[in-house]
Design a protein around this nucleic acid. Sequence first.
RNA 1: GUCCCGUUCGUCUAGUGGCCUAGGACACCAGCCUCUCACGUUGGGAACACGGGUUCGAGUCCCGUACGGGGCGCCA
Length: 481
Amino acid sequence: MSQKQTSLKAPVVRFAPSPTGFLHIGGARTALFNWLYAKAKGGTFLLRIEDTDRARNNEEAIAAIIDGLKWLELDWTGEPVSQFERAEYHKAAAEKLLGEGAAYRCFLTQAELDQMRIEAEANKTTLRVRSPWRDRPASEAPDNAPFTIRYKAPDEGETVIDDHVQGRVVFQNKELDDLILLRSDGSPTYNLAVVVDDHDMGVTHVIRGVDHLTNAARQAQIYKGLGWSVPEFAHVPLIHGSDGAKLSKRHGALGIEAYRAMGYLPEALRNYLVRLGWSHGDDEIIPTAQLIEWFDIDGIGKSPARFDVAKLEALNSHYIRHCDDKELFERAVHIMPEIPGGHDIAEALARGASGAFRAAIPSLKERSKTLLELIAGAGYVFASRPLAIDDKAAKQMTDENRAMLAELLAKLKSTSTWTAASLEADIRKFADTQDLKLGKVAQPLRAALTGSTVSPPVFDVMEVLGEEESLARIADHAARA
RNA sequence: GUCCCGUUCGUCUAGUGGCCUAGGACACCAGCCUCUCACGUUGGGAACACGGGUUCGAGUCCCGUACGGGGCGCCA
């Protein structure tokens, strides 16, 4: 009955990053929440670039943000909206407010403002600009003096935001200042632009970080001044670094593309990110389709979360394990250009190693937390003889073991079928006849085949490598007869 | 400083006055499995910030304290 109209219609949400840097974890989660909400409610997800501040505009950043969203598979409707290109609408709104007396020309100079700020600090109060020009006729201003247009904020009463995450938040109007709508160069500021754009784009729900909470109050006042209805707000808590401090670039906050390069899967990152602040009972592993079914703003908590790589890794390892082999292969190949040593591996693949790499994936994906680990684990596939042997593996190469390998080699040469299963049977039998535990045979064998003491099961390794290569690698370390 | 918000295991969280001697996940420790590493599995340690209320009963409601976070730009 008393439900607001907006909640009855299909919602329209947007992600509105400023192009000042790359898409970081916090922004990615905000985008995810918006996208999920749209998907869950049959609404629309829009993208708008908040580039009103030309000094900070950055084409590279815009490209990185779009690239990041695409990688995360968060698709939006239509073309990204450039806020800058809509400046005329923002100005028109400001003029309208000015004409109605809801805004005024302010001739305060930067120096005067700085002075006010210093005084406020000295008095230990917060600066709340209430310009003398609020009630002073513009005719008293010096000729040709530059001016800004300020919103005439109400002096009394309160502005209430019924936030879907924060609850009912009350701001005393006297705490809110007369914010600038149009800069002295005539360009619109963020708070005006957001209101006009969200209105024009039909945005019904604004889901963004809590750092915008006070802006919500100011924006609500502008909506009122313009005679528009205020959208629903949901201010989500911020994500902190593992040390509890704000996740900033200083604290090692990475762009989303860094996570791609570290071998994380987008579905894993989505799963991890959504659980930072949102929950659905005890559920942890939630595929995206299920997220879309379950997601709602109500599930978002109010307290900030810390970013924990270990949990991301655990989730990623799960998604890798359950990822289709072919798909995994393609994803691994796809990130080659952005990983260390990827160039060489790409060349090896081009030279014909891709068949073996594909064959190695089923056993490798069971033990890889990231694509990077998967690729590193496939090192034995890309290596060429004679193999480089690590220290621990070298310790396996005792005279005794080399002699054993020689005997095994002779046995293996007469093997007719070269599959993991038959090799396992053969080698178990061999160990038995030698009165050795399987491990005593498997470890030296692994060292010879992979140059390492850690690898997928040796029998799988042998099948992947094939008969010829396997025998050659064993021969390289077997004692000469 | 001021306004606003937050505080359950190391971390993410479940919990909406009795079902909680607080549950799950990750991490950690120990055992089992085992050709290594993983996986799996069994078990373990580990939290309601503190102090007052309200109530027959409080992790859950109220107040205060402490600590943490966010805002306080002609940035977004």
